[in-house]
């Protein structure tokens, strides 16, 4: 990989890692509350639609999911190598493809709201 492209991949990785390190504990806690049957008022249909319908909420959700997905994809690529899988090209194509599909789905669903 060229040095120029490497810095882009690394930049997305670092940004996504920082975002997910800061935000995901709260996200997991919210999923835990939902699982316990204690759905917080902000996660009721009308409230969440209003949040995701506003461009600020839309952009925030898109950025968080997009960057976290790329972070996870890039890190998973290295993890595959660390566990002894040496077919880096195939692994890279697969993980980045899944991240790209997830990003497109996120954009599509947010656009539809």
């Amino acid at each position: 990989m060229s040095i120029a492209r490497k810095s882009v991949v690394w930049g997305l990785f670092a940004a996504g890692g920082t975002l997910s390190a800061f935000l995901f504990p709260a996200v997991i806690a919210l999923f835990l509350l939902v699982a316990l049957g204690r759905v917080p008022p902000g996660l009721e249909f009308a409230n969440l639609q209003a949040f995701a319908g506003h461009w600020v909420g839309k952009s925030a959700l898109f950025l968080v999911i997009f960057l976290s997905l790329w972070h996870a994809a890039h890190r998973l690529r290295v993890v595959f190598h660390d566990f002894g899988v040496r077919r880096d090209k195939a692994v890279a194509n697969a993980v980045y493809l899944v991240a790209a599909i997830g990003t497109v789905m996120t954009a599509f669903y947010l656009y539809r709201i």
Partner: peptide, 18 residues
Amino acid sequence: CLLVGVYCALLIWALAAL
């Protein structure tokens, strides 16, 4: 990174329903 991936998937599932 697997957990980050799992929660991204859950969030996308939520967005699909929403």
